[in-house]
Lab assay of single mutants.
Amino acid sequence: MTEYKLVVVGAGGVGKSALTIQLIQNHFVDEYDPTIEDSYRKQVVIDGETCLLDILDTAGQEEYSAMRDQYMRTGEGFLCVFAINNTKSFEDIHHYREQIKRVKDSEDVPMVLVGNKCDLPSRTVDTKQAQDLARSYGIPFIETSAKTRQGVDDAFYTLVREIRKHKEKMSKDGKKKKKKSKTKCVIM
């Protein structure tokens, strides 16, 4: 069974824990209790493949930012979460993405942009803004509501699919490099 290491990042209060708990335990946590770091595991079937999701729910508070490099190193894919009623959390996505790329030393890291709290009427981040940002990053965008469960499975499952595509691409690139290195030079 394939294991996928997913990391949920975003500013404090955007609903990272609520999304994760909704996926794992099928219930909505409405009281806000700032996370330092929590880890969850769940076995699911995605596109006919049974897999184990190892999900790291991270601290959004700035005082825990020193811990970010460590979990970013171990993560295979990242859910970059903002709240649709919090423009600052949307603007912060850029910083999370840049930090992930720096730590992973790669421009090509599996990510999904997630606009959470889409059940709320007080939207300050337009869907088109988020779609445009995701398009500019070359990553999928999904709106979710941890409260109603809308888009929750889709967000995590899409990230797994992005990781699969990335692994497939990397193995193809690896095979191309191996083929090239088999060419021999004969000096007579």
Score class of each variant (00 low, 15 high):
2 T>P: 14
2 T>A: 13
4 Y>E: 14
5 K>Y: 01
5 K>E: 14
5 K>V: 03
6 L>S: 05
7 V>L: 02
8 V>Q: 03
9 V>K: 00
9 V>N: 04
9 V>Q: 03
9 V>T: 11
10 G>H: 02
10 G>L: 01
11 A>Y: 11
11 A>M: 12
11 A>P: 05
11 A>L: 14
12 G>P: 05
12 G>N: 15
14 V>P: 13
14 V>R: 14
15 G>V: 01
15 G>L: 03
16 K>F: 01
16 K>R: 00
17 S>F: 00
17 S>K: 01
18 A>S: 07
18 A>H: 04
18 A>Q: 12
19 L>G: 15
20 T>W: 00
21 I>L: 15
21 I>V: 10
22 Q>V: 03
22 Q>C: 04
23 L>Q: 14
23 L>C: 09
23 L>R: 07
24 I>P: 00
25 Q>S: 13
27 H>K: 09
27 H>C: 13
28 F>V: 03
29 V>F: 06
29 V>P: 12
29 V>G: 05
30 D>I: 06
31 E>V: 10
32 Y>H: 10
32 Y>N: 02
32 Y>K: 00
33 D>H: 01
33 D>I: 01
33 D>M: 01
34 P>L: 02
35 T>S: 02
35 T>R: 00
36 I>W: 00
36 I>Q: 01
37 E>Q: 01
37 E>K: 01
37 E>S: 00
39 S>F: 02
39 S>R: 04
41 R>T: 11
41 R>W: 10
42 K>A: 08
42 K>F: 07
42 K>I: 10
44 V>G: 12
44 V>F: 06
44 V>W: 08
44 V>K: 07
45 V>W: 08
46 I>D: 15
46 I>W: 13
46 I>Y: 13
48 G>Q: 09
49 E>K: 11
49 E>F: 05
49 E>M: 12
50 T>N: 12
50 T>W: 08
50 T>E: 14
51 C>F: 09
51 C>G: 10
52 L>S: 14
52 L>R: 13
52 L>H: 14
52 L>E: 14
53 L>N: 13
53 L>G: 12
54 D>C: 02
54 D>H: 03
54 D>K: 03
54 D>R: 03
55 I>Y: 01
55 I>R: 00
58 T>C: 02
58 T>V: 02
58 T>P: 01
59 A>T: 04
60 G>E: 00
61 Q>G: 06
61 Q>E: 12
61 Q>P: 03
62 E>M: 03
62 E>T: 04
63 E>F: 03
64 Y>K: 00
64 Y>C: 01
64 Y>Q: 00
65 S>R: 07
65 S>N: 03
65 S>L: 05
66 A>Q: 06
66 A>S: 07
67 M>K: 01
67 M>R: 00
67 M>D: 00
68 R>P: 01
68 R>I: 01
69 D>I: 03
70 Q>V: 02
70 Q>N: 11
70 Q>P: 02
71 Y>N: 00
71 Y>R: 00
72 M>A: 02
72 M>R: 00
74 T>S: 07
74 T>I: 08
75 G>V: 02
76 E>W: 08
77 G>F: 05
77 G>W: 03
78 F>C: 01
79 L>Q: 00
79 L>I: 08
79 L>M: 04
80 C>G: 05
80 C>M: 08
80 C>D: 04
81 V>H: 14
82 F>D: 04
82 F>I: 14
82 F>R: 01
83 A>G: 13
83 A>E: 15
83 A>L: 05
83 A>S: 14
83 A>F: 02
84 I>W: 14
86 N>C: 11
86 N>L: 02
86 N>T: 06
86 N>Y: 02
87 T>V: 11
87 T>C: 05
88 K>H: 06
88 K>R: 12
88 K>Y: 04
88 K>M: 05
89 S>G: 12
89 S>L: 02
89 S>R: 10
90 F>D: 05
90 F>T: 04
91 E>T: 15
91 E>V: 14
92 D>A: 09
92 D>R: 12
93 I>M: 10
93 I>K: 01
94 H>A: 13
94 H>V: 05
95 H>V: 10
96 Y>V: 12
96 Y>S: 13
97 R>C: 15
98 E>K: 03
99 Q>W: 03
99 Q>R: 03
99 Q>F: 03
100 I>Y: 02
100 I>D: 01
100 I>P: 02
100 I>G: 01
101 K>M: 15
101 K>E: 12
102 R>N: 14
102 R>P: 02
103 V>Y: 06
103 V>D: 03
104 K>Y: 03
104 K>S: 10
104 K>E: 02
105 D>G: 13
105 D>Y: 06
105 D>H: 07
106 S>D: 12
106 S>K: 15
106 S>F: 08
107 E>T: 13
108 D>F: 08
109 V>D: 02
110 P>S: 03
110 P>R: 03
111 M>D: 02
111 M>Q: 02
111 M>H: 03
112 V>H: 01
112 V>P: 05
112 V>R: 01
112 V>L: 11
112 V>A: 05
112 V>Q: 02
113 L>A: 07
113 L>Y: 11
113 L>Q: 04
113 L>R: 01
114 V>I: 09
114 V>E: 01
114 V>M: 07
115 G>V: 12
115 G>P: 06
115 G>T: 10
115 G>W: 11
115 G>Q: 09
116 N>E: 15
117 K>N: 13
117 K>L: 15
118 C>K: 06
118 C>W: 06
119 D>H: 14
119 D>M: 13
120 L>Y: 14
120 L>V: 12
120 L>S: 11
121 P>Y: 06
121 P>I: 08
122 S>I: 06
122 S>T: 08
123 R>Q: 12
123 R>C: 13
123 R>W: 07
123 R>H: 11
123 R>N: 14
124 T>C: 09
126 D>P: 07
127 T>F: 15
128 K>E: 04
130 A>N: 10
131 Q>M: 08
131 Q>I: 06
131 Q>L: 05
132 D>R: 05
133 L>W: 13
133 L>T: 11
135 R>C: 10
135 R>N: 09
135 R>P: 05
136 S>H: 14
137 Y>L: 11
137 Y>N: 11
138 G>F: 10
138 G>K: 04
138 G>T: 13
138 G>H: 05
138 G>L: 15
139 I>D: 04
141 F>T: 03
142 I>F: 08
142 I>G: 03
143 E>G: 13
144 T>G: 04
144 T>E: 02
145 S>P: 02
145 S>R: 15
146 A>Y: 01
147 K>N: 02
149 R>W: 15
150 Q>R: 07
152 V>C: 08
152 V>M: 10
153 D>S: 07
154 D>L: 06
155 A>I: 07
155 A>S: 11
155 A>F: 15
156 F>A: 03
156 F>H: 10
157 Y>T: 12
157 Y>Q: 11
158 T>Q: 11
159 L>P: 02
159 L>E: 01
159 L>C: 05
159 L>N: 03
159 L>K: 03
160 V>T: 10
160 V>W: 08
161 R>G: 13
161 R>Q: 15
162 E>R: 08
162 E>D: 06
162 E>H: 08
163 I>T: 06
163 I>C: 13
163 I>Y: 02
163 I>A: 04
164 R>T: 15
164 R>G: 10
164 R>D: 15
164 R>C: 12
165 K>F: 12
166 H>L: 08
166 H>I: 10
167 K>S: 08
168 E>A: 08
169 K>M: 07
169 K>G: 10
171 S>L: 05
171 S>F: 06
172 K>P: 06
172 K>V: 11
172 K>C: 14
172 K>W: 05
172 K>E: 08
172 K>Y: 14
173 D>G: 08
173 D>V: 04
173 D>H: 06
174 G>Y: 04
174 G>W: 02
175 K>I: 14
175 K>P: 06
176 K>D: 13
176 K>Q: 06
176 K>R: 05
176 K>L: 12
176 K>M: 11
176 K>E: 14
176 K>F: 05
177 K>C: 09
177 K>S: 11
177 K>I: 06
179 K>R: 06
181 S>K: 14
181 S>D: 14
181 S>W: 07
181 S>C: 10
181 S>Y: 09
181 S>A: 09
182 K>L: 09
183 T>N: 11
183 T>I: 09
183 T>S: 08
184 K>C: 08
184 K>N: 09
185 C>F: 05
185 C>V: 15
186 V>C: 11
186 V>A: 15
186 V>G: 09
186 V>R: 09
187 I>C: 15
187 I>Y: 11
188 M>R: 13
